[in-house]
Nucleic acid binder design. Structure first.
Lengths: 147, 147
DNA sequence: CTTTATCTGTTTGAACATCAAACCATTTTT
DNA sequence: AAAAATGGTTTGATGTTCAAACAGATAAAG
């Protein structure tokens, strides 16, 4: 039997990659890459969808984001909008088309989590959630400490 | 308080990316990208390190792998070796330099898992490991079903 | 006020990863 | 012996990313 250590390491190495590939496959017939979907996701969920904020959320430079936004604008998923009060800033708005993609993507995540949860009983679920919550906070701190 | 669903989804979305970025940062002063380290890792751990096998493990085409191997050969981490019995196949061998990288990378993973484990008590750990094991197997099946 | 500095975002050039398709050499099948 | 299949490599195109140069707008300093 595998040790706890080996199991966790294996999960670290394979589980997320597997899920990412499954996610990728659901997109194979659209005109969007997984990166582009994540940009759309960030735009849809951001409180304050300006370039610097979005780039920070996505961990890319504003330069990278700028080209991504341009192609998504060309494809009809996003629109730029100049801010009135400070004319340096640009707000990025999703189109209807983007909102539909976002809804579908959220549903994908919901389904994935449902499937995962269905494999556990209520008791296990409680323990796992509390544990992962703690682990996530720990790594978030670590990330914030070395940005 | 967040629901179990939200917590799991959040972990799905952020945890893996956070870890990947931390991993990336540890490489920032080497001449290797994270992709290249994963190629080296696959070469070091494969039972049968020929191109098609490795490409399958890494989920890339042999074409992609071929160029990756060429640059890693140029950088002194890998060597190609023609098979005797079937002269079409190439074995990819790690150099000493690659083995050192691999050892360091494994240590990184060990440390990461240690840190994660230290956040849980023995009891929680048992439950989490059993649960994640099940989830991992489930997604592995799913991957194998739609390759 | 005018000049200077800072901030926000875009463009550009380079590096890298990746794939599909064309290709070459070798082995297997017919 | 010829044709087909297999294992790898090369090549051309596309996508992602960054750093650096840039431009326009606002804030700070004089």
């Amino acid at each position: 039997m595998r040790s706890a250590h080996d199991t966790l390491n294996q999960v670290l190495v394979t589980l997320f990659n597997d899920i990412l590939r499954i996610e990728e496959r659901t997109l194979s017939e659209s005109d969007l890459s997984i990166r582009e979907v994540h940009v759309i996701e960030a735009v849809c969920e951001a409180d304050d969808p300006r370039m610097t904020i979005l780039a920070g959320l996505l961990h890319v430079t504003t330069g990278s984001l700028s080209v991504a936004v341009s192609t998504l604008e060309r494809k009809g998923y996003l629109q730029r909008e100049r801010a009135q009060d400070d004319r340096r800033v640009t707000f990025i708005r999703p189109t209807e088309k983007a909102l539909r993609v976002q809804e579908k993507h959220k549903q994908f995540h919901r389904d994935m989590v449902e499937e995962g949860m269905s494999l556990l009983n209520d008791y296990e679920l409680g323990v796992v959630v509390k544990a992962l919550d703690r682990v996530e906070h720990y790594f978030l701190q670590k990330e914030l400490a070395n940005p």
